[in-house]
Each structure stands twice: as C-alpha cells, then as structure tokens.
Design a protein around this nucleic acid. Structure first.
Lengths: 139, 139
DNA sequence: GCTTGACCCTCTAGCGACTAGAGGGTGCAT
DNA sequence: ATGCACCCTCTAGTCGCTAGAGGGTCAAGC
C-alpha cells in the first residue's frame, strides 16, 4: 500500500517512511501482514507536504503550515508570515547567486586558456602575490 | 596558532581542523605542547580554499582546482571547464529559484488575510477539493 | 503445494560541509 | 598558584533524505 501512495504523490517509499518517522505524516493502521494501510486523509496530507516541499518550505515550516491549516477558524496571518519569510529567504538567495554569477563570469572571461601558470582563474582564487605552487614552499 | 590562522582567513577553528581531517589542508607540524604550527604555505592554501568556497565551489571542486593549480606547466583548460560547470549550475539554480519566487508571489498575493478556512495559501497547497481539516477524516 | 517475483518490513549507516559539546591539556600573566 | 584564553581529541548532531542488509508477505503460475 505504501507503494501506491508513493506513486500517487510522486514520493519515494523511503521518504514516506521517513516522514512517518519524524512525525510529519501520522502512522497509518497496519494490515494482518504488517503492511501500512493508508486512507484518503494520508493522501491529502502527503500531497500537501509534497507541494509545500516543492515550493522550498523546510520540514519545520511544513509542520507549522499544517498545524495552522488545522485551526480553520483562526486568522491566516501566521500563514502569510511564513510564506513571506520564505519568499524573503529566496529573494536573498537569488541576490547572492546573481552576485556570485557575476564574479564567476569575470573570472571565466579573463581566462585566456594558456598554461596554469598564467591562468587568471587560479590567480584570482589565490591570495595576493604570484600564485606559487600550492603544495611546496618557495625554494 | 590555529586561532591565528582562523582569524587571518576568516575561518572557524573547527573548520580548519575539519579541512585537515578530510585531507584538504595538509597536516602542519606540532609544537612541544602538541599545538598545530602553520606556515605561510598553509595560509596561502587555506585562503585559496576559502575564496573558492565563497564562490560556491564544492569541496571536491576545490580539491580538483588545487591539484590543477599545482601543475603549473599544463593547460588551464581543465580549470576553465570546472569554472564553467559551476557557472552553469548557478544559472540553473537562479532559474529554479526565480520560478519558485513567482509561484510564491502568486500565492502570497492571493491571501486576503481572512481565516484559515478561506486562506488561499493553504488552499493552494492542499490538493484539489475543499481543504478539509488535515488531521481528521471527513465525518 | 511450491516456487517466483514484486512488493513490504525494520534497522543502520551514509551524504556534504560543517558545528557543537564533553572532557581534558598548555601557556602566560597576575 | 591560580585564573583564563587558548589548544587538543573524539563523538555526535544538523537537514532531508537515500541506500543497503537481511528478512517477511502475497498473488500468480506451474
């Protein structure tokens, strides 16, 4: 039965067992042969988890979101806060990566494909000076 | 002495010991009191590592780059290849995160800050249907 | 009734790149 | 001699899975 749930949600079997182990997915009933027997509720919950994970929410954030989803009468402001925090983190990551890409581009552009001794990439990585050998001290 | 090297390179002491353990940084000589005593070469090597890591190269890539940096007479084409592979990976990551940011923005925009029962974020995360409670099956 | 094969079970260890903590030793100043 | 900052080793934890060993279960086919 776990295989069915796995293919229905695009999750690996091991991942489902892992989610159960860390208490993200409730432990299902077992069959006579000790197989996990899932119900519609499990499918719904796991789909929620998958979707949130695909959107990059951490396991802890997913846990929080699911907790909030259960308190249906409350304000969803807390949900909004989590989503916005995550959005901000992604914004920062994109900025960091973009800056990095710029630096790398400059590095790569400067490479004239000569010998390593003249390689601007190695030079740029090495600190100051003349990029002596990395493994032996200057004789 | 490890503390000096740490502050000189902006690396944590534990990280330096870790680099030594995994063979990224050569084991230095020891003092009478068994303290690590570093030389200029260690500083140079660790600075190289730091800079490459800051640029997002993996430990394995750093290992490779340092190996190449030592073969000064060879062509630096291999260096260029590693840098370009890394650049491509970053390009992909940025694209992925940008797509994600778009999805999250749509989610967040739709939130009208009502109760959780009406929350579009929760709804969008939940699969199909009416977003019933997450923990109890429908009665 | 017996085998084959696909599925399931638990338990443990591994990945990458550190980080944190326990439990102890060293070196220098007061 | 005592305090304090620093150093040592060793082990285990982080995050989110993934892989493997070593077994059990179940339906189909012969």
């Amino acid at each position: 039965m776990i295989g069915k749930l796995a293919s229905a949600t695009g999750t690996k079997v091991e991942t489902i067992r892992y989610y159960e182990q860390i208490g993200l997915l409730p432990a299902p009933a077992r069959s006579a042969g000790n197989y996990r027997t899932y119900e519609g509720e499990h499918l719904r919950r796991l789909s929620f988890i998958r979707r949130a994970r695909d959107l990059g929410f951490s396991i802890d954030q997913v846990r929080e979101l699911m907790g909030l989803a259960d308190r249906r009468e409350q304000s969803c402001m807390a949900v909004d806060v989590i989503a916005n925090q995550h959005r901000d983190a992604i914004t920062r990551k994109i900025a960091d990566l973009t800056a990095l890409a710029g630096e790398l581009d400059a590095l790569i552009d400067s490479c004239s494909r000569n010998t390593v001794a003249d390689c601007r990439i190695i030079e740029a990585l090495a600190p100051g000076a003349e990029t002596q050998s990395m493994s032996a001290p200057t004789p």
